[in-house]
Write a protein that binds this DNA or RNA. Structure first.
Length: 589
RNA sequence: GCGGGUGUAGCUUAAUGGUAAAGCUCCAGCCUUCCAAGCUGGCUACGAGGGUUCGAUUCCCUUCACCCGCUCCA
C-alpha cells in the first residue's frame, strides 16, 4: 500500500534520533557495526525513565515480586539445560538453486539416484562454469528432470545455453545433502552460532568456553532457590530482572528493533500448579471473561494468572503513553507454541515497518525449574506446609484424581525431555507422591519485554509533524515528540524571555536551580523564545517555563508568577513560583 | 548468508576527472516583551581501503554501514 511513505516515516525517525541525540549508530567513526546501537543523551534519559517505571511498577509497588541482578556470563551448563546451546548452534545448509535454508540435521533423509555434474559450458560463447552440482531423483524419475535442474543451476551462475559436463549417476541412501522439495544439492552444512561465545580466564580453549546470556530469564531460574530462601517470599511470587542480553541475529533489521546487543525486562512469576491450587482452595478459578481479572486470589489457576499478567502489562504500556489501540494482542496458536509453553500471548506494537512484538507473556509450566533440577541434580521444588495439611483432609478420590493429573503432567514432561520410559514413569510417580508431603515444582508465568523495542515504539508513537504558516505566508513543518510526561527525557525547559536583560536571566537561573533538584530540567537562553520552544518540542519536553517582566513585577499582581507552556497544544498558563514545583510534579506523573 | 538499492557537513539536497555549493540546524555576538523573526561571523562532508590516472568525490575493484526482499527469529 503506502510503502514508500512507511519507509519515509522510519527514515525521519532515524534521522531525528541522530539529530537530537536519542540514538546513534555504534562505533560510527569506524564505519559502524551491524546490529549495535548507542543511546545519546536524550535516549539515555528516555531509556532510564522507562526502566525505572517498569522496575518500580513490577517490584517496588508490589509485595509479591522481588528483584535480581545476575551476571551476563554464567555457567555454560545453564544454557545446555535451557536448550539454548543445542538450538543456537544448528548446522544450516542452503539449497544451491533456490537458496532456501534448512536445518541440516532436520532434513528428511532422501534416497534415490543422484546425478552429478562437474560443470557446464555455454556452446555459443565457450564460457565454462566448473562448479560441481548434483540432483537427487527418487527412484523411477527420468534423468531429464535432473538435467533440467542442472541447466537452471548453471544458468543462475551466468551461462546462457548450457551443455552439461561429466554426468555421473550414483545410488544414494538416506542422504541429508539434498533439498527434499526439489532434489537440488545443498551447500555444506555450516554451523550457526547464535550465542555469543567467549572464554573465561586467560586461556582460550574449549574447556573455558562460556556464553553471553541470550536472555535474562535463565538466571532467575538458576537463582530461584536462593531467592526463595532469602526473600521471605512464598509461592505465588515473582522475581524480576532487567539487563543486557546478546544474540547473534541472522539479520539485524529495522533500526534498533532487532539488535545483537539489547536489553530485556523480564519477570518470572512462580505459581502453584493447578492440582495444588485445588487441594488448597477446593477449586481452580479460570477466566470467565476477557479483561483484567482483578486482584489475585488463592483459587487462581495458571490461566487466571496468565490473563492477569497480560492485562497488567497492557496497563503498563497505557500508563507510559502507548494507547491500547496502538497495541495488538496475539494469542499464539497451539502449533506455534514453543515446546515448553502452555500458552503465549504476544503484545505487538504497530510499528511503521509492521506490527511487531514488544513483549511475550508465556505460561511456561514447570519446564525451566524441572530442566535445572535434572541438569544440576539440585532439587528445585518447594515445600508447602499448608499443602501437606490440606492434602491429608482431602477425600481419597480427590487425592487420587489430583495426584494422577500431576503424575500425567510430570510424565509428559519427562518423556519429552528424553528420559527413558521406565525411569520417567518411576520419577513421575515419585513427583506425584510428593504432593502429599507438601512438595511440588512451581509453574511460571513469564512476561518478557524488550526495552529497546519499547523505546522504539515510544519514539514512533511520539513522533508528530506540525505544519504551520507564519504571517509572511511561509509554511514550516516542525517535529513534536509527544512523549508521555513520565518517560520524557526532560520534564521542563526554563527560559528567560530575553537574554540581554540580566534581571530576567538571573531570575530564570534561580527558577532552574529550584526545579532541577526534583526533575530533569533544561535551561536555554539562546535565540528567540519561539525557537527555544521548538527545540524543546523536538526533544519531547512536555512543559516550558518562561520568566518575563511580569515575573519581576512589571504588572504587580503577576509578580512571582511564570508562564508554563504546554508542548502538545502550545497553550499557556500563569503559575505562581511558589506552587510551580508541585504544579509540574503532578503534571508529569 | 543470498539478491536488489543507497552512501557528499548534524539534517535535506547540488555540482564536478582539476581548490566541493546551498538551505536548515548548531556555535559566538548584536538585536528581540512569548512560538524556528532579523543582522554579522564561525565549525563541520565526498563511508573506508586499494587500483587506473599527472590528478579520483566522480571510473574500476574490495570492504563497511544503512534500506528493501529472501532466510532466521529458541
Amino acid at each position: 500500500m503506502a510503502e514508500p511513505k512507511v519507509n519515509e516515516l522510519m527514515e525521519k525517525i532515524v534521522s531525528l534520533c541522530k539529530r537530537r541525540g536519542f540514538v546513534y549508530p555504534s562505533s560510527e567513526i569506524y564505519g559502524g557495526i551491524n546490529g549495535f546501537w548507542d543511546y545519546g543523551p536524550l535516549g539515555a534519559e528516555l531509556k532510564r525513565n522507562v526502566k525505572e517505571l517498569w522496575w518500580s511498577r513490577m517490584t517496588r509497588l508490589r509485595e509479591d515480586v522481588v528483584g535480581l541482578e545476575a551476571t551476563i556470563i554464567m555457567h555454560p551448563r545453564i544454557w545446555k539445560a535451557s536448550g539454548h546451546v543445542d538450538t543456537f548452534s544448528d548446522p544450516m545448509a542452503d539449497c544451491l538453486l533456490t537458496r532456501k535454508r534448512f536445518r541440516a540435521d532436520q532434513i528428511e533423509p532422501q534416497s534415490g539416484t543422484a546425478y552429478h555434474y562437474t560443470g557446464g559450458t555455454d556452446p555459443a560463447s565457450g564460457k565454462v562454469v566448473a562448479e560441481p552440482y548434483a540432483v537427487l531423483l527418487p527412484p523411477g524419475k527420468p534423468v531429464e528432470s535432473a538435467r533440467r535442474l542442472a541447466v537452471q543451476f548453471y544458468q543462475s551462475r551466468g551461462l546462457g545455453p548450457v551443455e552439461l559436463q561429466g554426468e555421473r549417476a550414483e545410488k544414494v541412501e538416506n542422504s541429508q545433502r539434498f533439498n527434499p522439495d526439489n532434489g537440488s544439492l545443498l551447500t555444506e552444512p555450516r554451523p550457526f552460532n547464535l550465542m555469543f561465545k567467549t572464554y573465561v580466564g586467560p586461556v582460550a580453549d574449549e574447556d573455558n568456553v562460556a556464553y553471553l546470556r541470550p536472555e535474562t530469564a535463565q538466571a532467575i531460574f538458576a537463582q530461584f532457590k536462593n531467592v526463595l530462601e532469602t526473600s521471605r517470599q512464598k509461592v505465588p511470587f515473582g522475581i524480576a530482572q532487567m539487563g543486557k542480553a546478546f544474540r547473534n541475529e541472522v539479520t539485524p533489521r529495522n533500526f534498533t528493533f532487532r539488535s545483537r546487543e539489547f536489553e530485556q525486562m523480564e519477570l518470572e512469576f512462580f505459581i502453584k500448579p493447578d492440582e495444588v491450587v485445588e487441594a488448597l482452595a477446593g477449586r481452580v478459578a479460570r477466566p470467565e471473561a476477557p479483561g483484567h481479572p482483578g486482584e489475585p486470589a488463592a483459587d487462581w489457576g495458571w490461566q487466571m494468572w496468565h490473563q492477569y499478567w497480560v492485562e497488567e502489562r497492557i496497563r503498563f504500556y497505557e500508563s507510559i503513553g502507548l494507547p491500547r489501540t496502538s497495541l495488538e494482542e496475539y494469542w499464539q496458536k497451539p502449533e506455534e507454541l514453543a515446546h515448553y509453553a502452555r500458552a503465549t500471548v504476544d503484545l505487538l506494537y504497530k510499528f511503521p515497518f509492521g506490527t511487531q512484538e514488544l513483549e511475550g507473556i508465556a505460561a511456561r509450566g514447570d519446564f525451566d525449574l524441572s530442566q535445572h533440577e535434572r541438569s544440576s541434580g539440585k532439587a528445585q521444588g518447594v515445600f508447602d506446609e499448608e499443602l501437606r495439611t490440606a492434602w491429608g483432609k482431602l477425600a481419597p478420590e480427590v487425592q487420587q484424581r489430583l495426584s494422577e493429573s500431576y503424575r500425567q503432567h510430570r510424565l509428559n514432561y519427562l518423556l519429552r525431555a528424553g528420559v527413558p520410559e521406565a525411569e520417567a514413569a518411576k520419577d513421575a510417580a515419585e513427583d506425584a507422591a510428593g504432593l502429599a508431603k507438601g512438595q511440588y515444582i512451581p509453574h511460571v508465568i513469564e512476561p518478557s519485554a524488550g526495552v529497546d523495542r519499547l523505546i522504539l515504539a515510544l519514539l514512533a508513537n511520539a513522533y508528530n509533524e506540525v505544519t504551520s504558516t507564519d504571517d509572511k505566508g511561509r509554511s514550516e513543518t516542525r517535529v513534536v515528540m509527544r512523549f508521555h510526561p513520565s518517560v520524557a527525557p526532560f520534564k521542563v525547559g526554563v527560559f528567560p524571555l530575553l537574554k540581554n536583560k540580566p534581571e530576567l536571566v538571573a531570575k530564570a537561573r534561580e527558577v532552574f536551580g529550584m526545579l532541577r533538584g526534583s526533575m530533569l530540567a533544561f535551561y536555554d537562553d539562546s535565540g528567540a523564545i519561539g525557537r527555544r520552544y521548538a527545540r524543546q518540542d523536538e526533544a519531547g519536553t512536555p512543559f516550558c517555563v518562561t520568566v518575563d517582566f511580569d515575573t519581576l513585577g512589571e504588572t504587580p499582581e503577576l509578580k512571582d508568577t511564570v508562564t508554563v507552556r504546554r508542548r502538545d497544544d502550545a497553550s499557556q498558563e500563569r503559575v505562581p513560583l511558589a506552587g510551580l514545583g508541585d504544579w509540574l510534579a503532578s503534571a508529569i506523573r
